Amino acid sequence: MYVRTTYATGDPAKLDSVADALSTEAPRLLSERPGYRGMGLFVDRELGKLLVGSWWEDEESRRTSDEALRERRAELIAPFAHSVATDNWEAAVVSRPEALEPGAWFRLVRLEFEPPDADLLVETFRDTALPKLRGIPGFAGGSLLIDRAKGRATVGAFYTDRNALAASRSAVAAVRAEATAKARVITRSIEEFEVVLTQVIRPS
Rank of each mutant, 00 (worst) to 15 (best):
Y2Q: 06
Y2D: 02
Y2P: 07
V3G: 03
T9A: 11
D11E: 11
D11C: 02
L15S: 03
A19S: 09
L22N: 09
S23Y: 06
A26K: 12
R28E: 10
R28C: 09
R28F: 13
L29P: 00
E32Y: 07
G35Q: 04
Y36M: 02
Y36A: 02
G40Y: 04
G40P: 01
L41K: 08
V43Q: 04
V43P: 06
V43E: 08
D44M: 01
R45M: 03
G48D: 01
K49E: 10
K49G: 03
L50D: 01
V52L: 12
G53C: 10
G53V: 08
G53Q: 00
S54Y: 01
W55N: 05
W56L: 08
R63H: 12
R63N: 11
T64S: 15
S65D: 08
S65W: 08
L69I: 13
L69C: 12
R73G: 13
E75S: 14
L76T: 14
A78N: 14
A81H: 11
A81I: 13
A81S: 15
H82D: 14
S83Y: 11
S83G: 05
T86D: 01
T86G: 09
N88I: 03
W89L: 00
A92Y: 06
V94C: 09
R96G: 09
R96S: 06
P97S: 07
P97L: 08
E98L: 11
E98C: 13
L100K: 02
P102T: 06
G103I: 10
G103H: 05
G103N: 10
F106R: 02
L108N: 00
L108M: 04
R110M: 09
E112N: 07
E114S: 12
L120V: 15
L121D: 09
L121N: 10
E123S: 15
F125Y: 13
D127I: 13
T128W: 04
A129W: 00
L130A: 05
K132V: 05
K132A: 13
R134Y: 03
R134F: 08
I136Q: 05
F139M: 00
F139I: 06
A140M: 09
G141R: 00
G141W: 03
S143R: 04
L144C: 02
A149G: 05
K150S: 03
K150M: 04
G151K: 07
G151I: 06
G151T: 00
R152D: 09
A153M: 05
V155A: 04
G156W: 03
Y159R: 08
A164Y: 10
A167F: 05
S168P: 03
S168Q: 00
R169Q: 11
V172A: 06
A174Q: 13
A177I: 07
A179P: 01
A179S: 00
T180S: 06
T180V: 06
T180A: 04
A181L: 14
A183T: 08
V185E: 04
I186E: 12
R188D: 08
S189E: 10
I190T: 12
F193S: 01
E194T: 02
V195P: 01
Q199S: 05
V200G: 03
R202I: 06
S204W: 13
S204N: 09
